[in-house]
Write a protein that binds this DNA or RNA. Structure first.
Lengths: 221, 221
DNA sequence: TCGTCATTCAATCATTCTATTGAATAACGA
DNA sequence: TCGTTATTCAATAGAATGATTGAATGACGA
């Protein structure tokens, strides 16, 4: 680790951060932590990974200053170190979106005609909600919903979409959102609702972006 | 590379971008390319690296959509793919600056009392220039200066600081800038000028940030 | 067409990164 | 204190990455 000169030492520090972001699993972990703090076990369950593996990745993120850990009895609760992490994630995503045709291909291939899924913007959603023109559903699991959601949203986890759409009286267009702009759940929710004959669109972003924009967040009742 | 599901495929694409940023040499290459396009050979010379090594790193960056290549006769000129790359670099840097005590330690250790080097902001600089209160020097090598510099700046490469300070009639405070916020050259220029008894400060950012902010850029005469 | 020059490719070895396993540590409750 | 539970540590094997070398390609000019 012999530091040759300050310039290289600085680049090395910057590289540590970027390298920590350079693994799909760690990015997914960050997106989950952006919803709220999590224990190692909870994260492991969400991602379907062995606990030890998640623990090691968390420590890699901690060394890079991306997440912070706080012991709480038997648990250790991890959370994002600060908002700059989300900004870095978003900017990396932006490069990928613009530059990698692959991203577009994946989205088109799996979600079909992306144009018909043109998302709703945050401002547009607020106007639609104010005028009572749409029903807003949060398709994340209940525990994430409880930690904060868009005011007025109904929690309809992905698995319950079908049942809900039958029971509820859906006269208006449905807007669905979940964890972030590339979170698959809202794509699938919209696809499911449409196949059932409903009018549905996605919110362009997810909960973390909503919160980061300084918009109001509602906690569980 | 078997793609299991779209979510993981997306995270993998994002990870490719982050991974490409996760190497000190590649970050340094990006900072150089932010000054203007470069051939492989020119970059290799600037960084003091074997050409083949630079070529391979450039291709890693190209695969990630971070740089683009354009053949020009015998040369291949590389340049940043778009502005989002610079934004991503900056946001990674921001995470490192906030979270890694190491960054601060390096800066303090090598550049001494950073407080006395409190940088000049872009707006402040424009006001100072307008009122003729400062002399602005660009301490980058002449070729980078030629590709674009702040209007009114004098090109004084680092090695010529001493000679220049003797020959020139420096009555006003000197402001130095170079490639970016952590580019060492402006730190060293300020230190050199101060040791010679002059009043000097750094511009907080460098050329790429100035250009990205939409401020006017002057080309070589 | 040939020689030259800039760049890329291919092959190698050393290093680092990942996932997995099982053992060790830390905190809680009985 | 002891058992239980959450997390971390340590060790391993396999995969990916990085630097280096020398050969191959592509384009220019004589």
């Amino acid at each position: 680790m012999s530091i040759r000169n300050p310039k290289q030492a600085l680049y090395e520090q910057f590289a540590i951060v970027a390298k920590a972001l350079g693994h799909p699993l760690r990015l997914e972990m960050i997106e989950h932590l952006a919803q709220g703090e999590r224990s190692v076990e909870a994260l492991a369950a969400k991602l379907g990974q062995p606990i030890a593996n998640i623990s090691q990745h968390l420590q890699a993120l901690r060394r890079a200053g991306i997440v912070s850990a706080e012991r709480d009895g038997k648990f250790v609760r991890y959370s994002l170190a600060d908002e700059s992490v989300l900004a870095a994630f978003a900017s990396v995503r932006a490069v990928a979106e613009r530059q990698l045709a692959e991203v577009d291909r994946i989205v088109r291939g799996y979600f079909d005609a992306r144009d018909r899924m043109r998302p709703v913007g945050r401002d547009e959603l607020q106007a639609l909600l104010r005028d009572g023109l749409v029903t807003l559903i949060d398709v994340r699991p209940p525990d994430e919903f409880a930690l904060g959601h868009v005011p007025g949203a109904i929690n309809v986890p992905l698995g319950e979409i079908k049942a809900w759409s039958h029971s509820a009286d859906i006269g208006r267009e449905v807007v669905a959102y979940c964890r972030g702009p590339w979170c698959v759940m809202s794509f699938e929710a919209v696809a499911a609702l449409r196949s059932l004959g409903h009018s549905a669109r996605r919110l362009e972003d997810g909960m973390p972006e909503w919160k980061a924009a300084g918009l109001p967040v509602e906690m569980a009742a």
